[in-house]
Design a protein around this nucleic acid. Sequence first.
RNA 1: GCGGGCGUGGUGGAAUUGGUAGACACGCAAGACUUAAAAUCUUGUUCCAGUAAUGGAGUGCGGGUUCGAUUCCCGCCGCCCGCACCA
Length: 925
Amino acid sequence: MTEKYNAAEVEPRWQKVWAERDIYRAHDDSDKPKFFALEMFPYPSGRIHMGHVRNYAMGDVVARYKKAQGFEVLHPMGWDSFGMPAENAAIATGGHPKDWTYNNIDEMRAPMQRLGFALDWSREFATSDVAYYKEQQRIFLKFWEKGLVYRKTAKVNWDPVDNTVLANEQVIDGKGWRSGATVEQRDMDQWFYKITHYAEDLLKGLDGLDRWPEKVRTMQANWIGKSEGLQMRFEWDGGKFEAKFVDTEKTLENRVIPNLAEDKQYYNLAKLWVGGEYPTGVEVFTTRPDTLYGASFLALSPDHPISKRLANDGYDHADHPVKQMHDKSASSIEVETFLKECAKIGTSEEAIAQAPKLGFDTGFRVKHPFIEGATLPVWIANFVLMGYGTGAVFGCPAHDQRDLDFARKYGLPVTAVVLPDGEDAATYEVGTEAYTGEGKLFNSGFLDGMNKNKGIKAATYKITEMGLGESVTNYRLRDWGVSRQRYWGCPIPVIKCGTCGSVPVPEDQLPVELPYDISFETPGNPLDHHPTWKSEGVTCPTCGKAAERETDTLDTFGDSSWYFAAFGGSLSADGMDWDAASKWLPVDQYVGGVEHAVLHLLYARFFTRGLIDCGLLDLSHSNLAPNPIGNEPFAGLFTQGMVTHATYALADEKIDKDKWVLPEDVDENDDGTFVHLPTGRPVLKGDIIKMSKSKKNVVDPDEIIKGYGADVARWFVLSDSPPERDVEWTESGVIGAWRFSKKVWSVVSDTTATDGPMAVASEASGDALELRKLAHRALDKLTTGIEVFRFNTSVAQIYELTNALSKYKGQDAARMEALGILIRAIAPFMPHLAEECWSKVGGEDLVYHAPWPVVDPAMLVDDTITLPLQVNGKRRSELTIPKDMPKDEIEKLALADEAVLRSIGDATVRKVIVVPGRIVNIVAK
RNA sequence: GCGGGCGUGGUGGAAUUGGUAGACACGCAAGACUUAAAAUCUUGUUCCAGUAAUGGAGUGCGGGUUCGAUUCCCGCCGCCCGCACCA
């Protein structure tokens, strides 16, 4: 008699056993090889969603599987708990961000534990824990010491209503996402992490990450954006730059930051203004010096120091009379107006990219380096980016589309210097399309006749020889601005002294703790207008004078850049063990969403390098073996797809946000249309998209656990779709998973054999042997499926094995062997069911502690094989023969096959191809 | 614009050193059990023709290489993702 399986009773019972026996604790001093399984930790929004379930279920499969393979597994969980939503909730509801956050964590921990993940909860922490951010402040100071932290003025998105800096992602169509105010570009003093210091290493490191998705590696490589080229100077024509200024007393505000001096990209700019000296020319970066002869103008970024200097004061274009000494000249006002015009265009990258080209002729001219006597006008152009290269370019309209658009608009000359193959130098002209391909150089003096590459080399050599420039490598990657004018984040451990400048808080005074008594009444950063925190009793650690605290907090992406190490180091109120962290790292398998492909995963790689250089981490060895992948935090990465669900919208509702309805309230009519049951209004089926509260297409994991059990929820999210693709949540799919769990249980409870689940039926024959073969074949495939992250194929094998077992009548060792394989195979997916089955069939100890079943290779080969027979590539018949039959005999049998003969008909056999163990193909014409 | 990926039955998908296309599941249909339903079990299910045996077509489209192509190559079409004036 089949007993009923009651997940609601079974699951909590086993969870209690697991917790009491503390089986998921990872031991630092284990003598087994280590395996660090990690999923991207959650933000405590208050609810877990199906995306979490899928993410952690995948990691759990790996963790449990590796445990069964004999590894010491670390599989921890924590909370990425600093961030804006807590502050927003506090502003909206009047609560406190801290209370909101920690309540949410408690709300989320419980359902997560109900899912039965093999997590070492003893290592749990939240990034908003004082102990965590204290350690982070230490790291900040160590990075500072190492030169990886600096302060500079940078352009930021400023929300004038909320009085805070916004990240780029928080600016939507040029407006603040919360206030709706038009965002301004502002120069502000900001703290930066010098991620560019590792640009080359971060790029090179990608090569070794062969267990990362290619896509993520490509995205990071593009983000780092290495390009090699020539940085060169165009010298002023007709005297010095300064001659154009009425008032040379005034110098531009000193933008030079001392510890930036070694940073090449900024050095050349900074150099221009040191001590008020004026630049002798304009520095540009180019990857196409071969086209220098086609240059027709120079373009400066609106943010270029020269542009700003011109707008700033005293600049007098030769054609304008000076109005009054020390007042703004007419020319400066013109420039200023133009720069404002450029700033208006918007902040989104796309808006900038599609904006029309704007230019302003400064009236300055520079000398062409190769053509004696030739000069080029210097323009300010909105399409030149300050953040890349030197913030200035030479324009070669014939061979660059942007330059061409610009030249056509402002009537600048277009001179072709690269001749495409098959074109005639006498007649070749560039119209509206710039030519960027290969070709022979012409109109180019000493470069004439060379191809592109040769031309680049020759021009670079010449410029270098002339002392005007040198080869440089440029990166698109920019330093990471980490200052946030927010409360709920890690305080930057710095004291600002009027005399000594920015001074680190001494280590023995850490942590700089967040005050609890804050107010969100006034807009802006609560830390800044806290009555006492900023300055009461604060003195400069260096000179002892009264001073002020830095009130900015660190970008929360910093929190997630080293948390994996904190797990390994068992971070607690007493600090953490960095040596232990070093032994656990790198993370062997990391699982998370692809949305972090660049930001989080790049920042974490940067932090790891910084932590190594500061002596905190040493990744040269894991606990037992040398580490082959170098200074990387994540040896294996898997990016999983989302959980999607159908959406339904009222057909007659005009207001977008009001139109979505709950899928369970929708019913399908006989004619295939849909109706909203509570109101009777017509409904249209929308796209199948990621579960989202606002679209009302969410399914609460806790409801599924209550209705079907945790195992079913876990099984479903892993079963149908490949892990990297999205999986659509459907009611029928869940019911299917639920039925399967019952089927497994019925197979187990129908078993009366007593050999135990570790049985090996070595004497099996007949049906028993067939079952053994099927079981081992399934085991082989499903194991591979887990190894290569194709859980859906593992699931299919488990289905096959279960189906075979449910049909198998014998109560013998072969049944037990297959059952033992099945139970251990489903354990990573449905651990509660597996545990219950294991105990039911007399398994020793827990299935969690049972070793992974071993494939018997003898079971994978058959004595007889079935070969398909093809005639002219089409399958006509098949042949069952002993596996070692010689080729010529196979050929003979194939040619005697009735169906084959029929297909050949009157044609003559030209060739017979026999691929042993694979196929026979007969070519007949 | 640049970069990456994908395209297979009614549906999710399987199949890789090139060798039986459609495993497994969902759905659907028929049957068994049942007063009935649910559950469960059995059988069938790529399309077209045929009662069937069988024949033909078939992995987005068009070509190519090959005895043989979902797989490799070339050219299109469509969808998705990332970056986006990077000089």
